[in-house]
Each structure stands twice: as C-alpha cells, then as structure tokens.
Design a protein around this nucleic acid. Structure first.
Length: 736
DNA sequence: AGCACGCCGACT
DNA sequence: GTCGGCGTGCTC
C-alpha cells in the first residue's frame, strides 16, 4: 500500500444522485455548457463520475456535472454508455472549473479540458508484466541464450522482458521466443513503490527570523483559507522557510502543490527539495512524457502523491486532499496564461485555496504591486525575511550612463563594464551579461533603400539568428534564410544588422575577454529540463566563465562564484507604454542583481541612457519601497490595477474589413454602466499576428465592478460572424 | 474540439 | 466526370 489513500481520511463524500432521468454531463470541449444525457438501465452515475458518452459520431469522456435541465427535447437525448474506472472528479475541482470559467468568460468545457488533460489516466494502469518460469514444455530447443535466461530465472525472481534480455546478454526476441514456446509465462507485478518526500527528515538550521516565519507558516497549515506573502531579498532563505510549511502539511497527510514559473529551469530547486525531503517531488508541466503524465495525474487523483511541483496547469490536477499551495516567484509574468483559457495562475491559486479552505503562500523577492497592496490592506498576511544568508548584502547597483560612458562604435558594452568584465575574469570569478533579446540583431535594414525586413504575417521585424543563419519571427515562428540581396531594391550586400542580441553580444565579448569560456543561454539554447540542468551544472562547477543570457537567467539560481552582473540595456521595456513595463523591468533587474555576490562581494553594472528614470533611480538606490511608492501613486492616480480593473477584447480574423466592422459593432453595443469606460477599438499592439488582423477593445472599470458578468452578457448580445474570433482577457497583464 | 456537409479546382 | 481542398455549423 502506497501511503496516502488510506491515511488521507474518509473517502470524498459524493452528493447522492437525486433522481430524474437526465444527467448533465460536462464535456472537455469549448461548447456553451453541459449536455444532457439519459441514465442507462444498468447503473446510476453520481455527480463527479467520469463517463463515456456519444457526441455526434464520436465517443467522448465527460464528467457528470449535475442533474439535467429541460433545455433539449427528450427525443434528442442519448444515453450515457459507461462509467470509467477512475476516482470521481472531486467536488472542489468541479467548483474550481465552474469558478474559473465564469471569471475568465470561457466555456466551462474549455476549463474542464485542462483538468482532464490525460484521457488515458481514466483507465486503470496495465500492471507491469514480468516473466517467470513456466512448467517447461517437453521438446524445448535449448540454445545457449535460452539456457542463460532459464538459469537466471531459477532464482525465482520474475523480471521484465527488457531486464531479462539485458542480464542474459541477448535480445528481447529470445525472451519472447521462450514465452511463445511456453517455457516462460507473464505475471503481473505491482509497480515498485517510488519513495515519497519524507517530512520527518531534519531541515537546514534556520536563523531566528527564518524560524519565526517558518513557525507562522507551519501554524497556518491547519488554519484553513488564508493567503500569506513571504517576502524576502534574494538569498534570504525563503525556500527553506516554506519547506517547513510543506513538511507540516505532509505530516498531516495532506497534498502540497508548488507552482514555479519555469519548471524546466527548476533543477536547483529540485536538488534543494531532495536534500530536505529525501525524495523528489512529482513534476507537472507541458513536456512530460505521456506515461509520466498518466501516472502523475492518476496518482494525484488517488491521493498517492504528496508533493507536486508544476507550471500553472498543475492547478487543475484532481487533488484528492490538497492542503497547501505555494506560488514561488509570484510576481513572474509567465504565470499569466495567454493562449486558450486566459487566466493568471497566481490569482487562480488563491481562488483554489479559498474553495478548498486551505492556505496559500505567495513567495517573492519582488512581489507584484497587486500582492503588495493586498498585504498592506490586510487581505493577505505578510512575512518578511530581511537578512541575506551569510550577511552578504545585495550589491549596490552601479549606473553606467551610456551618454557619457560610451561603447566603441558598433559595440554595446561601455568601457566601465568592459573593465569590470576583464577584472572579474582575471580574478578567476564568473560574470553574467544580461540582455533580454534573443538572436543576433533585432532588426535587419537595407543601407541602400532603407527597407526593414518584416514578418509576412505579423506586425514585427524579423530577428536575425546568425548561428542558424536565418531570419525569424518571434511571434509566429516564421523563418527564412538570410537573404544575400535586399528583398525590396535588390541591392547586393546592403543588409545591415541593427541593434544587439545575445549572439552579437557574445561576438563583442569574444574580443574583450578572448580566453573566457562563454555560454549563451536563451530559450533557443535551453530547450528543456535536461539542457537547463546542464547549464546550471556547468556554472556551478565553473566550467564556464561568462554567461550571456536573456531573462531566462534571471530566475532564482544561486551561483557562489558569480560576482559580476552586467545589464546591457536596462532601458529595454521602460518605454513600452505598457502598464506594467516599469514594474517588470524593476523586478527583472532586481532579480538579476540578486544573482551577483551570493557567495562573495559582487558588482552589478546597469547600462542606461536614462539614469533619471524612477525605476533606474530606485534600483541604483537599492530602494524597493521607493519604487513601489512611485508605482503605487501612478497607478492610483490613473485608477489602474489594482486600484481599478481592466479587461481586453481581442477581435481577430483574416479579413481586415470584417474584423474592423465586428470590433466597431461590439464597441457600439457595449451596455452603459456606471464607472465603466470602453476604449477603442484600436489596432492591437500586434495588429497582424499569424496572418490574422487584430483589433483591441479595452474596458476600464472601478475596482468593485464585476467585469466577467458584464463582458459575458455583452459579448453574448452582439452577433459576430463565425469567421471572427473574440478573445476575452480579464485582467490583461501584457498588452500584446 | 472534431466531424459532416457543402461547394469549387486538378486528376484517373 | 470524380477526389479532395477547407469554410461553416452542429453536437445532448
């Protein structure tokens, strides 16, 4: 017996089926709501059961959502075909699906699809097969390979085919031959129980202030719903502190969910977890192997898994007895899902905690303004860790004013940063250059005619990726070989790369520190967990001297030898006109600075053309409070989130005129409401994306306004041609 | 989401 | 003459 299912207390109570001949079944499809089905003769499903139903020509799996309505005539009803042998979808999960659907203005079926992303998991797992000796047939041909296999099995231990073949140094075909001949038989063996994280192990010694926060979090585990912000500078031991809350939940036989923004980059987090709990947590993200996915989904539902660490989609796992949610790096923009159902995983984690009546811990060194305000107004409790581990302060950020400290012509690294780079590497330490731009150059320009090469299906420049010799669109994936001549005027060798990308920076740096072992880290080079783990290992073992990376390297790593961080363009993103541009820039640069000097005294140099910008001033002063105060003031004045609310409608389609017409019709027909302003339609920031024209309507409403209900009624009341898509984004984060 | 139904170009 | 392209609309 794997622990969990039994220790998790009584079985989930299922509401009794309350009679009637129809049941509402929610299907994992983007259709308006549940469909009714008739109850079969031989069994009566209960609410939450996974059932197979016919839909059109297909057979689908859905979830019994409640009793049916009278919305459809008796004659159209089809019968539920069968009950699937899986634990029912828990009551909390169903309420969560409905809540998220209602809030995001997406059909509940679209949300359910995220909760049943593993159809195979609904069937019981085939038990692993092992081979054992059968009574030997009378005329068995005995070859040497066959003899070895039979000899191996004489110890009475059944083995899987592959293992047997390996041990006997023959191919699996020989084993199968013996099975066919009747000399071996397959037996089912229980899966080897995987070790679970163990809360009884002793954690690291905590400082008094860490211990105090840990005790508060431990106490919170039995306290029902509450949200706490765990706020501490990089290196203050936030992870070790919330590990104590995890230990407490595990001690109470509850499941724990930890959300991380980039699960693929979590190798160091995972190592710390194993050190604390003796076994790895289960991972959940989009590029898991199918079998792994199946096993995890199923055992989360069975209550056999106690800790899941995952990307945002892990929120929709069917936890049987969830007792704690931790959202690490809660400020991270990647918690916002932009494709399909548009939701913010941090906010939905809070909702999931409330529905489950369990605590939620939001963790960050640079909490979002939303969370800070929630903490300040008492909606969230706040725990602050002020001291950096080992007493090493966050290095002061030195501003490099590019207007005076100019890089050489055609280069991007200023003299002062060049000197720092040379000194750091000469001292045998590591350095990191941060530039949030993939590729070689963000723009390719013809010197003869001024033509700029753009994506044929998006409003975007093509980015040169010199390593692969291509021009690429970062929005739709379009790629073309680097042309020899200008596509507009035909001039030969007139194309010129404008602006820096990490590849170009690497080229420049090779001239400054020719002997440095340099590594470029971007989403192009770090394609998965293995590549990320390899990167971390190479930095830890000092296999590389210089790391050049995009925001991917700004995450919560810990590298003791890294003592210089250079931010090549701190202004990137400051002038985007985006509501959160300043905040994101501050968070990113503060996190980048936190990479430096964790083990030793470090330097952080930040290149800017705009030293008097409030973000740069606050960063240079190391003054987070000052930054937050400025930001809060500006947002409050403009009634922007969290002091007001926004929703965006993106209207898109292939035909520009009909997109325009639909967008105008929507805006014209927005019902008037107090305090609500309809802005637009205007071309969306990416007015053309993947060949679709896009217009945006923004809604601005007071804080207490119920945007979801308003938008649902509004969009439902306006007839839009079926070729036009209307995408609703409640609480938009980025404006792209 | 998938699948059928439906109406226009290049093939046996 | 059909095979098949994907635009439109429905599925309890």
């Amino acid at each position: 017996m794997v622990n969990g299912a039994q220790r998790n207390g009584p079985k989930q109570p299922q509401p009794p089926f309350c009679g009637g001949k129809r049941l509402a079944v929610l299907l994992p499809l983007p259709i308006a709501g549940p469909y009714d089905y008739s109850v079969p003769a031989d069994f009566v499903p209960a609410v939450g059961d996974f059932v197979e139903v016919p839909l059109g020509q297909r057979i689908l799996v859905g979830v019994v959502w409640g009793v049916g309505s009278d919305s459809v005539t008796e004659t159209k009803l089809k019968a539920i075909r069968r009950l699937l042998p899986a634990p029912p979808l828990p009551d909390v999960s169903r309420r969560f699906v409905d809540w998220v659907a209602s809030y995001t203005v997406f059909p509940p079926g679209a949300v359910l699809r995220m909760a049943m992303s593993v159809p195979e998991a609904l069937l019981p797992a085939a038990l692993p097969q092992a081979m054992d000796l059968a009574s030997p047939p009378p005329h068995l041909k005995l070859t040497p390979a066959r003899r070895r296999i039979l000899a191996l099995l004489s110890d009475g231990l059944a083995r899987p085919i592959a293992e047997l073949a390996r041990e006997a140094a023959c191919s699996a075909a020989v084993v199968r031959g013996l099975v066919a001949a009747g000399a071996l038989r397959a037996v089912e063996v229980p899966a080897a129980p995987e070790p679970l994280p163990d809360w009884r192990r002793r954690g690291l010694d905590l400082t008094p202030s860490q211990a105090e926060s840990a005790a508060t979090l431990r106490a919170a585990v039995s306290g029902g719903y509450a949200v706490r912000l765990l706020d501490g500078v990089p290196g203050s031991g936030k992870t070790e502190v919330y590990f104590e809350a995890i230990a407490e939940a595990l001690a109470r036989d509850l499941q724990v969910l930890v959300l991380l923004p980039e699960i693929a980059l979590s190798a160091q987090w995972r190592a710390r977890f194993i050190r604390r709990f003796g076994a790895p947590p289960r991972e959940w993200h989009s590029d898991l192997a199918r079998g792994e996915r199946r096993r995890t989904w199923r055992s989360v539902a069975e209550g056999e898994i106690n800790v899941v660490v995952g990307a945002r989609s892990a929120l929709f796992l069917p936890f049987r007895q969830l007792g704690l949610i931790v959202v690490d790096e809660e400020h991270d923009p990647s918690f916002k899902q932009e494709e399909g159902v548009t939701y913010h995983a941090r906010d939905m984690a809070v909702v999931r905690a409330r529905l489950g009546e369990i605590p939620c811990v939001l963790v960050s060194a640079t909490p979002s303004l939303e969370t800070v305000i929630n903490a300040r107004t008492g909606r969230y409790a706040e725990l602050v860790l002020r001291d950096r581990h080992g007493g090493v302060p966050i290095p002061a950020i030195e501003v490099v004013d590019l207007r005076h400290d100019r890089p050489p012509k055609g280069a991007f690294v200023a003299p002062s940063l060049r000197r720092a780079l040379v000194e750091t590497l000469a001292a045998g330490k590591q350095a990191m250059l941060f530039l949030n731009r993939r590729g070689y150059a963000p723009l390719t320009l013809c010197r003869a005619c001024g033509h700029r090469i753009r994506c044929p299906s998006c409003t975007a420049w093509l980015v040169e990726h010199r390593l692969v010799g291509r021009l690429q669109c970062h929005h739709c994936g379009f790629a073309s070989p680097l042309p020899k001549a200008c596509p507009a005027c035909g001039a030969q060798d007139s194309l010129s790369a404008c602006g820096p990308g990490v590849e170009r920076l690497a080229e420049e740096v090779a001239d400054i520190v020719p002997r440095a072992r340099t590594l470029v880290a971007t989403s192009d080079t770090l394609t998965g967990p293995a590549a990320a783990a390899d990167l971390v290992r190479r930095i830890e073992t000092h296999d590389v001297d210089l790391i050049i990376g995009t925001q991917i390297v700004a995450k919560g790593y810990h590298f003791p030898e890294l003592t210089l961080v250079g931010c090549v363009d701190a202004d990137l993103g400051l002038s985007g006109g985006d509501l959160r541009a300043a905040e994101r820039t501050f968070q990113l640069l503060y996190q980048v600075a936190g990479r430096s000097g964790r083990g030793d005294v470090g330097r952080v140099l930040m290149q800017t053309c705009w030293p008097e910008h409030p973000v740069i001033v606050a960063l240079a002063a190391g003054d987070r409070e000052r930054f937050l105060a400025t930001e809060e003031h500006e947002r409050r004045e403009a009634a922007m989130p969290p002091f007001g609310r926004l929703a965006a409608l993106i209207i898109s389609g292939r035909d520009e005129a009909s997109v325009d017409a639909a967008a105008r019709a929507l805006a014209r027909n927005a019902p008037p409401a107090t305090g609500l302003r309809v802005l637009g339609p205007a071309p969306a920031p990416l007015a053309l994306l993947r060949g679709r024209h896009r217009r945006r309507i923004l809604l601005h409403a007071p804080r207490a306004f119920s945007l979801s209900g308003y938008v649902r009624d509004w969009v439902a009341s306006v007839a839009v041609p079926s070729t036009i898509r209307v995408h609703v984004d409640i609480d938009p984060q980025s404006f792209l």
